[in-house]
Every structure is written in structure tokens, then in C-alpha cells.
């Protein structure tokens, strides 16, 4: 069985930036027990490198600040060096995977699922386009997890 880790991140007090934590919570509620470890957090920090190093498959869930509001984007993430001027206050998934590889000697397969946000002001509500697109993101996340788990089962079987 594949060890799946889901990390939804963002600021739940800044409207659409709260998409990641909201999606993580909904996904956790809809997955069967033991299917995945799901974490909701404010931002990506170096400490996440350790749980990532133990996973075979990682999904990052986040809001995007570019693109047509409500647009779902699914992209593979590979380890990459931090850009010049990077800070540990705001890490990208690719940097975190790079940290994981440097610190723990491995970096799992990872995907980033985003929905382009419309409103990043102060508030706890998702904007209508993001709210409407959320079920699609959850369906895509479940499909990716199912696929990863099936591949792992075939490999061990």
C-alpha cells in the first residue's frame, strides 16, 4: 500500500487563501481510514520535510493568485533550488521537496493542485468561483490517490 501524504496550506483568514486547509479537511473526511495522512497548515515550513520523506506520494493543495478565478490546475512537482531571496517564511512545494532530498536522501512523487482565487482579502469565506471549483479539485485529488495506491498495489502484488 502506498503511503500518501496530503498537505493543504494557506491562511484560513484570507478568503480564497484558505482553500488549501478547507480542501484538506474535506478530503480527509471523504477518504477511507488509512488511505492517506492529511495535514492542514498555514504555510509550508522546513519541518514538513520529515513527514514528506516518509511518503511515497504527496499532494499539495493550494490557491493560486494568477489565472481566471476558479480554474483548476494539476501539475507534477519536482525538487528545485530555492530562488534567490527565498525565505523559510514562504516555501514553494518544489523547494520543500529539495529540502527533503537534501536532508533525508529521497523525494517522493508529488503533485500540486490549485484553484485560481478571486478574493484574498480578510475573511473566512471562499469566493463563489473557488467554492464552485472545489468539488473538481477533490475529485481530482481522490483520482490521483487511487491511481498511486493501485500502482503501489500492483508493484507489491
Amino acid at each position: 500500500m502506498s503511503d500518501v501524504l496530503v498537505i493543504g496550506y494557506g491562511n484560513a483568514l484570507r478568503c480564497d487563501d484558505g482553500l488549501g486547509p478547507e480542501a484538506a479537511e474535506r478530503l480527509a473526511a471523504s477518504l477511507g481510514p488509512g488511505t492517506a495522512r492529511v495535514q492542514a497548515c498555514h504555510q509550508l515550513t522546513p519541518e514538513l520535510a520529515e513527514p514528506i520523506s516518509r511518503a511515497d506520494f504527496v499532494l499539495f493543495l493550494d490557491a493560486a493568485c494568477d489565472g481566471e478565478p476558479g480554474t483548476l490546475r494539476v501539475q507534477a512537482v519536482l525538487p528545485a533550488d530555492a530562488p534567490a531571496g527565498a525565505t523559510i517564511h514562504a516555501m514553494e512545494p518544489s523547494e520543500l521537496l529539495n529540502w527533503t532530498r537534501a536532508l533525508f536522501g529521497r523525494s517522493p512523487e508529488a503533485w500540486l493542485l490549485t484553484i485560481a482565487g478571486a478574493d484574498f482579502g480578510v475573511g473566512c469565506q471562499l469566493s463563489p468561483p473557488v467554492r464552485d471549483a472545489l468539488p473538481s479539485l477533490l475529485a481530482e485529488a481522490r483520482a490521483l490517490i487511487r491511481s498511486a495506491t493501485d500502482r503501489a498495489t500492483r508493484k507489491t502484488g
Binding site: P46, A49, E50, A82, I88, W99, A102, L103, F104
Partner: peptide, 20 residues
């Protein structure tokens, strides 16, 4: 911290684990 990561990953790893 990125420089520390490059020069002494063991030290950076200890920092991450202790803070964690």
C-alpha cells in the same frame, strides 16, 4: 539556512527535527 543545508545537512536536519 540554505547555506547551512548545503554545508552541513546533518546540522540542518537536527534543527528541523528538534523544532518539529
Amino acid at each position: 539556512i540554505f547555506g547551512v543545508l548545503a554545508k552541513r545537512p546533518d546540522l540542518a536536519r537536527d534543527g528541523i527535527r528538534l523544532r518539529q
